[in-house]
Each structure stands twice: as C-alpha cells, then as structure tokens.
C-alpha cells in the first residue's frame, strides 16, 4: 500500500527526516513512537505533501503510484486521509458542508455519520471554530469517515481528549481502520464483512491509550530522524515506559 524509501525531508532548511524506510501493507496498522521533536509529525506532513516540508531525497510510493512530489489533493484522492492535530478554523465554512465535500461526490449521510461521533449538534458551526480538543478529534474523524481513505494518518488520537471521549474516539478509529463506516444497521454481519474496505493506518501515539481499541500489527520508534527498534507496539510502549527513549540511542549505535 505505502512504500517509503530512503526518505530525507527538511522543514524550513532544517533536515528532520534522515533516510526513512518503511512499508505499510494493505489492512495493516503501524504505530509510530518517538520523543518530542524526533520527526514523527514531519513524517506525516511529508507523506501528505504539505508545502513547508521539502523532500530532498528518497521516494514515496502509494498504491503503486510515485507520489513523492504529487500535490496534496492528488494524494487525498488516491486514498490518503489525515487527522490533523491543530486544524485551522475556516470562518463561514459549515462543518456539514466540509463533510459533504470530503465525500468527493459520493452520496453521504452526514447526519448519520455525525451521530456516530456525537457531533450532530456541531454540523452548523464553522469548522474548528472554538472546538475543544475532543471536538477537534471527533470532527476530524467525521471528515475521515466521509472521505473513506484507504490509508489513515493519525497524529496522536489521544491528545487533549478526556477519558469518556477517548472511548468514543478509540472505537471510531477502530471502525475506520476496519472500514466499517457506513451507518447501516440493517446489514447483517456477513454483509458488513463483504462491504468492508481494507484500510491501513499510520498512527502516532505517546500514551498508547489508542492501543486498547485497535489491532496494531507493528510499531517502530523514530529517533532524531531515523527509524529504529521495530517490535510489537505494546512491547515498545512497555520498554519506553521503563527505560525511556535513551535505549533507542543505544540500539541505533
């Protein structure tokens, strides 16, 4: 699904990613760990193609297409979807309208999807205007549900979220990764399985709370622009909890 080869990227003339190699298979969820400033968010932003992130070397291939220098919307239309940490407010743009646009011409039950993330009361508000941490997450998930990406990039699903919301967000991320986003209770379990779309995930987490909700296959630590320490995400989390990221430095050397 996604192949990253020897990826080097700079943010405002400062090298941040220094040779990333990573492959995420169809239907696979990959967890990215790493201390603050190690380049995790940069990796996501570079994959999405944002202007401030310059690729100096390497290649990104998604569904067999070289997207290393593709504009953002082409990546989105190919199936990459991203949940933003701090999305900008767009005044006068109603949440409902944006969710509709996310579906890119497909019929979408905005109300039904919004109810799933308890966001139906926000549909007539300007997108992100005065949204709390949890509300931003629910709004981002709602947009992703309408977008139906085949690869979800998620930067810290837990940040700024209270415990009650964490449950809702965790469940929704799980459904999103399983491809169960159509709010159609009439379908039987078997029919649901058939309509599922394989969705891959690349998720950044510090706390690991999200691991209680999803089946994460693989994890790795990003340290100072290099990927290292591939293991089961739970094991990485335990290890970092006990010894800190210093261990990674040793492992790299």
């Amino acid at each position: 699904m996604l192949i990253i080869e020897d990826l080097h990227a700079m943010v405002a003339d400062r090298p941040v990613l220094k040779g990333i190699n990573l492959e995420i298979a169809e239907n696979e969820t990959f967890i990215l760990f790493g201390p603050n400033g190690s380049g995790k968010t940069t990796l996501l932003m570079t994959l999405m193609g944002f202007g401030n992130y310059t690729i100096t070397q390497g290649k990104i291939t998604f569904k067999g297409v070289d997207i290393t220098h593709a504009p953002i919307h082409e990546r989105a239309r190919l199936g990459i979807g991203m949940s933003f940490q701090r999305p900008p407010t767009i005044h006068g743009l109603k949440t409902r309208h944006l969710v509709k646009m996310c579906a890119q011409g497909r019929e979408v039950d905005v109300e039904g999807l919004a109810q799933k993330v308890n966001f139906d009361h926000f549909l007539d508000r300007d997108i992100n205007a005065g949204f709390s941490g949890g509300e931003i997450k629910r709004s981002e998930l709602l947009q992703l549900m309408a977008q139906q990406p085949s690869l979800v990039l998620f930067d810290e699903p837990e940040s700024g979220v209270d415990l009650e919301n964490m449950h809702l967000i965790g469940r929704t991320v799980r459904e999103l990764l399983r491809g169960e986003v159509e709010p159609d209770p009439k379908l039987s379990m078997k029919a649901k399985k058939l309509t599922r779309k394989a969705t891959s995930g690349l998720i950044i987490t510090h706390t690991g709370y999200i691991l209680d909700y999803i089946n994460a296959d693989r994890g790795q630590v990003l340290y100072n622009g290099h990927l290292c320490c591939e293991a089961n995400p739970r094991d990485i989390l335990d290890h970092v909890g006990k010894f800190g990221y210093q261990e990674c430095v040793r492992c790299l050397n």
Partner: peptide
C-alpha cells in the same frame, strides 16, 4: 492562509476549489 488551503486539499479539493 496557506494552512487553510492545504487543510482542504488534504480532503481532496484542488487548490482552486479550496
């Protein structure tokens, strides 16, 4: 704001649409 344009582009809108 470029950030607003890119946010909408990440949802599949091209630059003019955004």
């Amino acid at each position: 704001d470029q950030e607003e344009i890119e946010y909408l582009m990440a949802r599949g809108l091209d630059e003019d649409e955004a």
